[in-house]
């Protein structure tokens, strides 16, 4: 599997990342390098081997249903480019 500049542009657009044509062209071989490396892994025969989900035996920890967080609005909004009346402000998005 390999990608071309059209695919890179589409992925950038889905992620709302603006990229110049030069950046896109530079990204194509980088993507393909990563994909090629992943494809190498496909050469290993893993028939009958359970997928490994963690490198050490471990299971998902669950939390109790207790409110332990929140009420930190100023912290949450501190880095927002725009915030008013306790809300984040973003460029108008309307359906």
């Amino acid at each position: 599997m390999s990608v071309d500049s059209k695919t890179v542009k589409k992925i950038a657009s889905l992620a709302r990342i603006a990229m110049t044509d030069a950046e896109v062209e530079a990204m194509v071989p980088e993507f393909n390098g990563i994909l090629g490396w992943v494809e190498q892994l496909g050469e290993v025969d893993v028939t009958g081997v359970e997928p490994m989900t963690a490198v050490i035996p471990n299971s998902l920890r669950l939390r109790e249903d207790v409110v332990t967080d929140g009420n930190i609005r100023d912290h949450v909004l501190a880095n927002a480019p725009a915030a008013e009346h306790g809300f984040f402000g973003v460029p108008k998005v309307i359906e």
Partner: peptide
């Protein structure tokens, strides 16, 4: 539930805006 699916922030309806937000939720 009292808290959110992946964080300890509250779920109650009608709170002040962004008062029930943890750094995970943000």
């Amino acid at each position: 539930s009292n808290a959110k699916l992946f964080s300890g922030a509250a779920t109650a309806f009608g709170a002040e805006p962004n008062a029930q937000v943890s750094l995970v939720d943000a």
